[in-house]
Structure formats: C-alpha cells, structure tokens
C-alpha cells in the first residue's frame, strides 16, 4: 500500500515535485502553445508552472490554497494567486488548465491536520477535490480550452472520466506510467 506517511516524508508545508509532477509537466510542455494562457491549480512548489512557462513561452498563472506553496512558487518566478481552486478566475479566460490534485484515498481518522494533508488527501474516495474542480472548470475555460488532469489508479480513472462526462467533457488519456503502487494517467478533457 502507498501510505500517506511514506509520501509525506519529512516535508510538512509544501508538496515537493514527485513522479506525478514530472509526468504532468512533461505532457503539458508538449501540448501547450506559446500564445496560450495557462492556469495551474494547486501549484504547490511551482515546479510544473515554472517548467511549462520555461519550455513553451506561454503565460502560466498558478493558484494554491496554501500560503507556503504560494511563496515557494513565487520564489521560482511563477505568477501566483492564493485561491480556493478556481474561485477568483474570470469566466472564459483560460486556454489550458493544469491540475495535479490531492488524490490519495484517505480513511477518516487517518488524516493529518496540516498542509501536507491538504496537498495529498482526496478524502475517502480520493475524489473529494477532483469532483468540485470538474464541476467548476468549464466556467473558466475559453471556448476551445481544455484541461490536463493527472489521475492515479488509486483514485479510479473510470470514475473521474464519468464525472467529467457529467460536466460535458470528453476524456482522452495522453500518457500512462506505471509505478509499484499505482499507475498515473494524464487525461485531456475537452468539450
């Protein structure tokens, strides 16, 4: 089992780039065009936003709930706002939205009351943050905009695809990678 405690390591304030971050950054850097406006939700350390901006030349704006993450991302030169998911983003603005969400399924009572829990835990289903994100992301997307969402087998790719469909999105898996305890998929969601 992938235990939250193992993933947590010693870092308790800001989620540090891991396999999931690398995968999302690599796929995003291939997909994003120079003239796109990109939003990265829950940027954490700012690693993905920095790489995508650096490798594509696109403007990348990042958001995070965690003030420590906001500072870390800003220190990397990322344009960042402190926000709850997509709340303060204008309607019909974003060409691309990137999200490596908190996705690990967590039993009640197994959680920690700190920023690392917020970065990792997706509640009992692993989809406690993904589901509201999928319900709201359509508002901020430009007419031809799309989402690149990182999903783990632990969270259930099928369930995420079904929820996305309820919000009017078609899903395509752009990349899969297998690791000892999970496989990671980057989904492209478009309308």
């Amino acid at each position: 089992m992938t235990d939250l405690a193992d993933r947590r390591g010693i870092e308790t304030d800001v989620y540090q780039p891991a396999e999931d971050s690398h995968l999302l950054a690599t796929v995003a850097a291939e997909q994003v065009d120079e003239d796109n406006l990109v939003l990265e939700v829950g940027t954490g350390s700012g690693y993905v936003a920095e790489r995508v901006a650096g490798e594509t030349g696109a403007r990348v704006v990042a958001s995070d709930l965690n003030p420590h993450a906001c500072r870390a991302a800003r220190d990397r030169g990322v344009e960042v706002v402190r926000a709850d998911l997509l709340d303060p983003i204008r309607t019909d603005t974003c060409d691309v939205v990137l999200f490596n969400p908190p996705y690990l399924p967590t039993e009640e009572g197994e959680e920690w009351d700190d920023w690392m829990e917020v970065a990792l835990s997706g509640g009992e289903t692993g989809r406690a943050v993904i589901d509201p994100f999928l319900g709201n992301v359509g508002r901020v997307l430009a007419p031809d905009g799309y989402v690149l969402l990182l999903v783990s087998s632990l969270t259930g790719v099928e369930a995420v695809v079904e929820t996305a469909a309820e919000s009017g999105f078609s899903a395509v898996a752009l990349r899969d990678e297998s690791y000892p305890f999970e496989s990671l998929t980057v989904l492209k969601l478009h309308r």
Partner: peptide, 9 residues
C-alpha cells in the same frame, strides 16, 4: 502581500 494577492473569500 509580498507580491501575492490573497483571493480567498
């Protein structure tokens, strides 16, 4: 603050 807008409700 410190260049970061806090847009939490």
């Amino acid at each position: 603050e410190d260049g970061i807008p806090n847009l939490l409700p």
